[in-house]
Amino acid sequence: VTLFVALYDYEARTEDDLSFHKGEKFQILNSSEGDWWEARSLTTGETGYIPSNYVAPV
Rank of each mutant, 00 (worst) to 15 (best):
E33R: 15
S52H: 08
A12D: 02
A56S: 10
T14Q: 10
V55R: 00
A39V: 12
W37N: 01
N30A: 08
Q27I: 15
G45S: 06
L29E: 05
T44H: 04
L18I: 11
S31P: 09
G48Q: 01
D9N: 07
N53L: 09
E38W: 15
L29F: 07
L42A: 05
S31R: 12
F4C: 08
S41V: 05
I50F: 01
Y10T: 01
V58Q: 07
L42F: 06
L3C: 10
Y54T: 05
V1F: 12
F20A: 02
L7V: 07
E38A: 08
P57S: 07
H21S: 13
Y8E: 08
L42N: 04
T43S: 13
D17H: 15
V58I: 13
D9S: 08
D35T: 12
N53E: 10
W36C: 07
T43W: 13
S31H: 11
E15R: 11
Y54D: 02
E11Q: 12
A6D: 00
S19L: 02
V58H: 08
A39Y: 01
E11V: 14
Q27E: 14
Y8D: 08
V55M: 09
N53Y: 10
Q27C: 12
T14R: 15
I28N: 01
E46N: 13
D9C: 08
D35H: 11
I50W: 00
K25G: 05
Y10I: 01
S19A: 07
F26V: 03
I28Q: 02
V5F: 09
D35E: 13
S32N: 11
T47N: 05
A56C: 08
N53Q: 11
I28H: 01
G48K: 02
V58L: 12
G23W: 05
Y49N: 08
E24V: 04
G45A: 05
G34Y: 10
F20I: 06
L3W: 10
N30I: 06
T2D: 13
E38G: 05
T44E: 01
F20K: 00
L29V: 08
T44W: 03
A56L: 07
A12W: 03
L7R: 03
T47Q: 11
Y8V: 07
S19F: 04
R13S: 11
E38T: 11
K25L: 15
V5Q: 08
E11W: 09
G45Y: 07
A39T: 02
K22H: 06
Y49M: 14
W36I: 08
S32H: 11
H21R: 14
K22S: 07
Q27V: 15
Y54V: 05
E11I: 13
W36S: 06
S19E: 04
T47V: 14
T2N: 13
E38I: 15
S32A: 12
D35G: 13
G34F: 11
T43R: 13
L29G: 04
A39F: 02
T44L: 02
E33K: 14
V1A: 13
L42R: 04
G34T: 14
T44Y: 03
V58T: 08
T2K: 11
T14E: 09
A39D: 00
I28R: 04
V58E: 10
A6T: 03
E15T: 14
W37T: 03
E38V: 15
G45I: 02
Y49E: 03
H21A: 10
F4E: 01
D35I: 11
P51Y: 07
D35Y: 14
V58D: 11
S52F: 07
A6S: 05
F20T: 03
T2V: 13
D9Y: 04
P51G: 03
L42Q: 07
E38P: 06
R40F: 09
E33G: 14
Y10A: 02
I28A: 03
E11N: 10
E38N: 08
N30T: 09
G23A: 03
E15G: 14
L29P: 05
N53P: 05
P57M: 09
L18R: 02
S32G: 10
K22D: 02
T14G: 15
A12Q: 06
A12Y: 03
A39K: 00
Y54A: 13
D16K: 15
A56I: 13
T43I: 10
R13F: 10
Y49F: 14
I50C: 01
A56Q: 11
E46K: 15
L18H: 02
K25C: 12
Y8T: 06
E24A: 06
L42I: 11
F20N: 00
T47I: 14
Y8F: 11
E11D: 11
T43N: 10
P57D: 05
G48Y: 02
D17T: 15
I50R: 00
K22W: 05
Y54M: 12
G45N: 09
W37Q: 03
E24L: 01
A56D: 05
T44S: 10
W37A: 03
K25E: 09
L7Q: 05
V58M: 12
D17G: 15
S32W: 09
E24R: 01
D9G: 05
F4K: 03
Y54H: 09
